[in-house]
């Protein structure tokens, strides 16, 4: 274990504190972010979120700012909570993460902000699930409240399928898994639109086209460039603002009856898919994310701290740290 405060002081540029890139995995996106910070002459410590622990009330670690890239939803929220408790600006905020990582919460927030969302109904237990489905009509889709990457989505074409899926939901052990989040099945041209947002800037948009009705890149959808029209930009920025703002992936659906709907907003946005056939797009996203993170970082003096973690590495021009890699 290492003392992260000492680590930060050694790594410092500017006011002496590095930016903390907190991640579960260094993926394509995190590598691009590291390069973007490096090009700006900014020191970064890479923190493995699995190694973090802290005592409530301790002084803050010497981070200028934190970029929360945790891949695990549970840890993603706790990372942002921890940073905010220490007074460290973090992208994204705990509030934004909490809204985005809960589909019920995010749909309520988006609807309250006047944004167009698919017809949605919620049941608080599987026993009320058929009623929720009746409210949205069939075919419908039941989604896990906390799911991602297209996992656990069930298309309900008829009452037999509804009974089977609701019975399965009833057998799941977690009360969270027994919540029923049902939406109309939105017929689209076999694609959706991902708009990547950094603060008040819509960076880029891509189409995600797949053979399957689930259009996630994680499920094999192909990406292609999508013109970022004023309509898309306006909708994406309004959706981003509604969930609290930050570094976000806004997913939009074009229904075959002419509606443009906000399907969801992702707080742990991946953009490898945006690089397929056009790496410059992914680079542009990383640059915009780095700029946003740095724009949020204060310029004041560092505070001492005692958070410990097991793996911290420095990118950029800062001197290498000894003893940080077990």
């Amino acid at each position: 274990m290492s003392d992260l405060t000492r680590t930060g002081a050694e790594a410092g540029t500017g006011d002496g504190r590095p930016v903390a890139l907190i991640a579960s995995r260094v993926r394509f996106e995190e590598k691009l972010l590291l390069e973007a910070f490096r090009r700006r002459g900014v020191a970064v410590v890479v923190i493995d979120d699995r190694t973090l622990s802290y005592r409530v009330g301790d002084p803050a670690p010497a981070w200028r700012m934190a970029c929360n890239r945790s891949i695990a939803g549970t840890r993603r929220l706790e990372v942002s909570r921890m940073c905010e408790a220490f007074g460290i600006p973090v992208a994204n905020s705990a509030s934004t993460v909490a809204v985005c990582d809960n589909k019920i919460h995010s749909t309520l927030v988006l609807h309250a902000a006047g944004l167009p969302v698919p017809v949605t109904a919620v049941a608080l237990a599987p026993a009320a699930g058929e009623e929720a489905l009746r409210r949205v009509g069939l075919p419908a889709v039941i989604k896990p409240v906390n799911g991602s990457w297209g996992r656990g989505l069930c298309k309900i074409n008829d009452i037999d399928a509804a009974e089977a899926v609701l019975a399965l939901k009833e057998s799941l052990p977690s009360p969270q898994q027994q919540l029923i989040y049902a939406q109309e099945f939105v017929r689209t041209p076999q694609r959706d639109i991902r708009v990547v947002v950094a603060g008040d800037c819509a960076v880029t948009a891509v189409h995600r086209t797949g053979e399957h009705w689930i259009g996630n890149v994680a499920r094999g959808a192909r990406t292609s460039r999508c013109p970022l029209t004023p309509e898309l930009e306006d909708l994406a920025l309004r959706a981003a603002k509604a969930v609290g703002g930050g570094l976000l992936g806004v997913d939009l659906l074009e229904s075959d009856d002419g509606r443009l709907l906000v399907n969801e907003v992702n707080s742990g946005v991946e953009f490898r898919g945006a690089a397929v056939g056009d790496e410059s797009t992914a680079f542009a996203i990383a640059e915009a994310f780095a700029d946003y993170v740095l724009s949020e970082a204060p310029q004041g003096e560092a505070s001492p701290g005692k958070v410990t973690q097991g793996k911290a590495r420095t990118a950029g021009p800062a001197p290498s740290q000894e003893g940080d890699n077990p």
Binding site: A23, S24, R25, V26, R27, E30, K31, L34, V46, D48, K311, R313, N325
Partner: peptide
């Protein structure tokens, strides 16, 4: 050369 800890 630029492999990072936690990279897959």
């Amino acid at each position: 050369a630029d492999t990072e800890v936690t990279e897959i």
